[in-house]
Simulated assay, not measured.
Amino acid sequence: MARYGITPGKAYGVSIPVLRRTVKGPGKNHELAMKLWEADTQETRVLASMVDDVSQVTGEQMDEWVKEFDYREICDQCCMNLFEDHLHAYDKAIEWSHGDEEFVKRSGCNDGKTCRE
């Protein structure tokens, strides 16, 4: 995983395809997503991005989660699974693309590519 920039503090080694199959049952659930995020493992955070209800996600939540990104996979999964469908996704992308922190900036850039000013 480290070879691909996946360096979570805690991980169980469950693959993304298995996680995707797991979320087909429960559907969207904001409260569950918040609990999964707080569990703070690679898999629970990816699952949180998959099950959260974008209509209940606030801009504050987006900013808080982005500040906690510490490796590429969680950044990219949250952006693709959740943030890109948010009403304010474009505004957040512009805001984050001017950030100084690596993963805040990455969250604002198209497809995780390096931003150019």
Rank of each mutant, 00 (worst) to 15 (best):
R45C: 05
I94D: 11
V54L: 05
E73G: 07
H30K: 10
R45I: 04
R116G: 12
L19Q: 11
V57K: 03
D63Q: 11
K24F: 05
L87D: 12
F69D: 02
Y4F: 13
K28S: 06
D52Q: 00
C78Q: 08
M34I: 07
L19V: 02
L19I: 03
V104K: 11
K24I: 06
E84L: 09
Q56M: 15
D52P: 02
K10V: 15
E31V: 11
N81S: 08
D111R: 12
F83Q: 01
E43Q: 07
T114P: 09
C79R: 14
E117W: 12
G9Q: 13
P8Q: 12
A39I: 07
S49I: 00
R72A: 13
R20I: 02
A93L: 05
G13L: 09
V51R: 00
M1D: 14
S55P: 04
L82I: 02
Y4R: 13
E101M: 08
S49E: 01
R3N: 09
F103H: 14
G99Y: 09
R3A: 14
Q56H: 13
L36S: 07
V54T: 07
K67F: 04
G59N: 12
C115E: 09
D53Q: 01
N110D: 08
S55E: 15
R21P: 00
N81F: 00
Y71K: 00
C78M: 13
C75W: 03
W96Q: 00
L87N: 08
E43R: 04
N29M: 01
G25D: 06
T44L: 06
L36V: 03
D91P: 00
E43M: 07
V46L: 10
M80R: 11
K35P: 01
K105G: 06
E31T: 12
I94K: 15
K113Q: 15
H30S: 09
T41Q: 06
G59V: 08
F69Y: 03
S15Q: 10
E101G: 07
C75T: 15
E64A: 13
A33Y: 05
A48V: 04
K67G: 12
T58A: 07
V23F: 01
A11I: 05
V54S: 11
E95Y: 10
N81P: 04
A93H: 13
